[in-house]
Write a protein that binds this DNA or RNA. Structure first.
Lengths: 164, 164
DNA sequence: TTGCATGCAAATCCTTTGCATTCCT
DNA sequence: AGGAATGCAAAGGATTTGCATGCAA
């Protein structure tokens, strides 16, 4: 499988939306194209696996902006649906560049020992969400689904494994 | 449907494991039967829908113990699998008394406007988890699944709805 | 008796916010 | 120009932890 970056702990198919298209989305949302914003989008484009605010901030390197700006922008980008937020159960928000519509939707399998993350293509049976919405009179129903377990490396050497 | 308490925002089937059985589980886990511990279990038994640490602490009433003790106990109970922790995406842990084994496993449908919570009986296709585990060489795979949407009351009067 | 559990207070960590300033559009 | 975005510092809120004391086994 083609991997998104050097990080051996992650593997997923590449989306690689051109930066120009991302800035267009900002424009269409009446958001200003600022240096921090572009830098953050570049980081997300380079590392297409779930990143925390802190990790994004670190990855900015020379393009560094304030950590608060990272938080503010990720929130904005989430509202604009340009990024997707994931919850791995540790109380820390993680973000990924969102694919267009349905194509982008996916879930993860997370190793609870070494934090290795595998992107999954599987999802719920398509009618399940609709059934649940209808049965309980809810609208605009979405879901959050993540899998957790122990990866092969960690079951082999429980204490030796390190992320990456 | 039989409801677990007066709270109109929640409805679920009752489990009502006897307190004696719960304290037995503590004993089997070599945990001491203390007043705070029993009081917390009583609260969880009375309100069988997801509660935050703070809510549990409030519900203790006269049996009040320190909030830190609530946190410590919920963590312990989670490790012992006596309670299940849920993530509703707001960064606050919520707990429910766990049913025995498979029977207890369930998911929720949460209204993102008024926080109404509906317990669901639906779950993933039973082989899906096994397939994913096998395909990626993971063991002991579990999952977290929650649904979010707008309940009928909130779509009718978006701004008037209040929890409960 | 013996250590696990608790209370209290302080510390952590993630995240948000107020405000003056900067800078896209 | 004018409003949105940023930097900086401080605040907020959930959760954890150190330590002396208390209590179940």
């Amino acid at each position: 499988m083609k991997t998104c970056c050097d990080h051996p702990a992650h593997s997923r198919r590449l989306i690689q939306t051109p930066l120009a298209e991302l800035t267009d989305q900002l424009r269409r949302g009446s958001r200003k194209i600022t240096a921090p914003r572009q830098a953050i989008l570049e980081v997300l484009r380079r590392h297409q696996h779930p990143l925390t605010n802190k990790e994004i901030h670190l990855a900015l390197g020379a393009e560094e902006c304030d950590l608060a700006t990272v938080y503010r922008n990720l929130r904005t980008l989430e509202e604009m649906r340009m990024v997707a937020r994931f919850d791995f159960g540790d109380g820390i928000a993680r973000y990924e560049l969102a694919g267009m519509g349905e194509e982008g939707h996916h879930h993860h399998l997370v190793c609870t020992h070494c934090a290795r993350v595998v992107e999954l293509t599987e999802c719920l049976p398509s009618q399940m969400e609709r059934d649940i919405a209808e049965r309980h009179g809810f609208s605009q129903v979405t879901h959050r689904l993540e899998f957790f377990g122990t990866c092969s490396r960690c079951s082999a050497a429980p204490s030796l494994s390190k992320p990456g």
